[in-house]
């Protein structure tokens, strides 16, 4: 059975790679005769891993293709950096600006929109800054800054940190002072810290929901999933590491993984995954309308000379 699965994987990986990339080029001769003993190196964010979603997806992928996935959960910034150094085959992250830079520098290929959830602003239930009365993320951050209420920041170049900085920027506030603390830690640690110190923080809904029982925090401003501001949207993207730059990466396996994750089967795993009875992520890869923006940096336009 094992052997047949590998055969199927070999065939589908080649098929997917050929279909998407159009041409296999030199990628087909990198000693890829068999994939026995191979595994896929995935660099990803703590939110996808710590919530448990990736274990579900990776188990389904392994069942289908017989190849285990080695998921290295860091922040988005760290995941992208390790891919830049050729230490990952595929990355799953959530900071479009950093993804675009990665793509522009030629390190990534075949970026796909994968799924989304949203960010929420959480804090102590007595809400000293009155965040619960605001309706915009910028107004909420403004209120926190005005009240000089304690706020803990991830401070780790992660997707959540990138979003937080974008909100401060949009609010026109330069955070600083005793009330603003950068932790340099993952989402879970940051939520623990906010809970212990009675601080506000920005959290992705998935991690917050999966940890809700362990922390003394409340959602004070909802994201777009619950009717909150669009600025708190949290889209995840997936992309393969460019085999032209890093010849050691397993490009075909990476494309098989992206193909699986964005397929109806993979997207079903995403929509069926719940924690405490609540859905954490929403599939975004399949749509009736074409979305060409997902493949290129945001706002990218052709120079016209190739048209």
């Amino acid at each position: 059975m094992e052997y047949r699965r590998r055969e199927i994987l070999g065939a589908s990986a080649t098929g997917i790679a050929a279909a998407v990339a159009g041409c296999l080029g030199s990628g087909g001769d990198g000693g890829e005769a068999g994939i026995a003993g191979e595994e896929l190196a995935l660099a990803t964010t703590t939110s996808t891993y710590d919530t448990g979603l990736l274990d579900e997806v990776n188990a389904a992928f392994q069942e289908r293709f017989g190849t285990p996935v080695a998921a290295n959960a860091q922040g988005t910034g760290a995941a992208i950096e390790s891919a830049r150094n050729g230490n990952a085959d595929v990355i799953l992250v959530h900071a479009r600006s950093q993804e675009d830079e990665f793509m522009r520098d030629g390190h990534g290929v075949n970026r796909r929109d994968l799924m989304f959830n949203d960010f929420v602003i959480v804090g102590p239930s007595d809400d000293p800054a009155g965040v619960g009365d605001t309706e915009q993320a910028t107004a909420a951050f403004d209120a926190i800054a005005n009240a000089q209420a304690p706020f803990v920041s991830r401070g780790d170049d992660s997707g959540t940190h990138t979003k937080e900085l974008a909100i401060w920027d949009a609010a026109g506030v330069e955070p600083g002072g005793e009330w603003y603390q950068e932790l340099g830690q993952g989402m879970g640690n940051t939520l623990n810290n906010a809970s212990e110190s009675g601080s506000y923080t920005l959290a992705d809904r998935g991690t917050f929901l999966s940890m809700q029982d362990n922390v003394d925090l409340e959602i004070l401003l909802q994201g777009p999933i619950e009717g909150g501001p669009e600025l708190l949207a949290n889209p995840y993207g997936i992309m393969a590491v460019n085999p032209e730059i890093h010849s050691n990466v397993n490009y075909q396996l990476a494309m098989a993984y992206i193909g699986f994750f964005t397929s109806p089967a993979g997207q079903d795993v995403v929509s069926n995954y719940t924690a405490n009875g609540q859905q954490l992520f929403y599939p975004e890869a399949l749509s009736e309308d074409p979305d060409f923006q997902q493949y290129v940096p945001e706002g990218w336009q052709s120079d016209g000379d190739s048209e």
Binding site: T46, D50, L54, D55, E56, V57, N58, A59, F61, Q62, P68, V69, A70, A71, N72, A73, Q185, G186, M187, G188, N189, L191, N192, S210, M211, N214, V215
Partner: peptide
């Protein structure tokens, strides 16, 4: 990299790195 596979077998996850993971998750 604190890596474990989806079926629960560890590749590079040790007791100490598992402790950091569980602490991060609030467990």
């Amino acid at each position: 990299g604190n890596i474990a596979y989806a079926d629960g077998t560890s590749k590079t996850r040790t007791i100490t790195t598992a402790i950091t993971l569980e602490t991060r998750r609030g467990e």
